[in-house]
Amino acid sequence: MPPKKSISKVGTLEDALSYIHDRCTLMFGGFGGVGNPPTIINGMLEKGVKELTLIGNDAGFPTIGIGKLVSQGRAKKLIVSHIGSNPVAGQLMMEGKLEVEFSPQGTLVERIRAGGVGLGGVLTDIGIDSMVEEGKQRVIVHGEEYLLETALTADIAIVYAKTADTFGNLVYETSARNTNPLVAMAGKFTIAEVEEIVEIGELNPEMIVTPGVFVDLVIQSKGVDWKWAWE
């Protein structure tokens, strides 16, 4: 019998952008811009995508990573842990041009993880009797009160990794890993931007963090715009 043809998920930036449309919910990996996928974000700017709901750790910086989309008014809503590093986001929020849902960082990450593994939500006592509790259900377990934090998923998830094989198995580089593995699991369609693409079998299995089963498309990165900000 002839050998089975291996699956290749490698595509182009144009392929990636064909899945990203106005008014979609988009989840992104990254922490303060580090780990944001810049080639995809720049492509979204050029395409003119707008009215996005963005889910991720923060609003980045005005001219770095996801912050570019926010600063140019392409987002209608953010679900993030903070926006302090991007003053434009704060200004847009105060002017009523941007809706922001704040979630404590640990809670936000757990909500993303829950979405990725198919849970409906998580229980936490963080935020009880504070503004965080607004609109949320209290649940009593063994006599203790918790808030129900609903899971987060997205139409599209975009992540950044150091290396991928053609099936989409991902290896990350040090702190640029941050939220990317969890985000990769929580998208209905996940696109990975990577520095290097290798053939199946070339990655050390012990180094793979995100299995390719969670990744739908892999594209080559054209270079990052955030490393200098942390030097």
Rank of each mutant, 00 (worst) to 15 (best):
Ile79Leu: 08
Val88Arg: 15
Ala75Asn: 06
Gly90Phe: 04
Ala59Glu: 05
His82Gln: 14
Glu101Gly: 09
Met94Glu: 15
Pro62Glu: 15
Glu101Pro: 05
Gly65His: 07
Gly60Asn: 02
Ile66Arg: 02
Asn57Phe: 14
Met94Lys: 15
Gly67Thr: 09
Val70Cys: 03
Thr63Met: 07
Gln91Pro: 01
Val70His: 07
Gly96Pro: 05
Thr63Val: 09
Ile83Gln: 10
Asn86Glu: 10
Ser81Cys: 09
Gln91Asn: 11
Gly60Asp: 05
Lys97Cys: 05
Ile64Arg: 04
Ile55Ala: 02
Ala89Trp: 08
Leu69Phe: 04
Asn86Met: 12
His82Arg: 14
Gly73Asn: 06
Ile64Lys: 06
Leu92Ser: 08
Phe61Ser: 09
Glu99Cys: 05
Lys97Val: 07
Met94Gln: 14
Gln91Trp: 11
Lys77Trp: 08
Thr63Cys: 03
Val80Cys: 12
Val70Phe: 04
Gly67Lys: 03
Leu78Tyr: 08
Gly96Ile: 13
Gly90Leu: 14
Leu98Lys: 11
Asn86Cys: 11
Lys77Cys: 10
Ala89Cys: 05
Thr63Leu: 07
Ala59Gly: 07
Leu92Phe: 06
Val80Ile: 12
Pro87Ala: 01
Gly67Pro: 02
Ser71Trp: 02
Gly84Asp: 15
Gly56Asp: 00
Glu95Cys: 02
Ala59Cys: 04
Val88Gln: 10
His82Phe: 12
Ile55Ser: 02
Glu101Phe: 10
Pro62Gly: 12
Gly67His: 03
Ala75Asp: 05
Asp58Ala: 00
Lys97Gly: 12
Gly65Lys: 04
Gly96Thr: 09
Val100Glu: 08
Arg74Ile: 01
Asn57Val: 15
Ser103Asn: 12
Thr63Glu: 14
Val70Glu: 01
Ile79Gly: 06
Ala75Gly: 04
Val100Phe: 12
Gly84Gln: 07
Leu69Asn: 04
Glu95Phe: 00
Val100Ile: 11
Gly60Arg: 00
Met94Gly: 10
Val80Ser: 07
Leu54Gly: 00
Ser85Arg: 13
Lys76Asp: 11
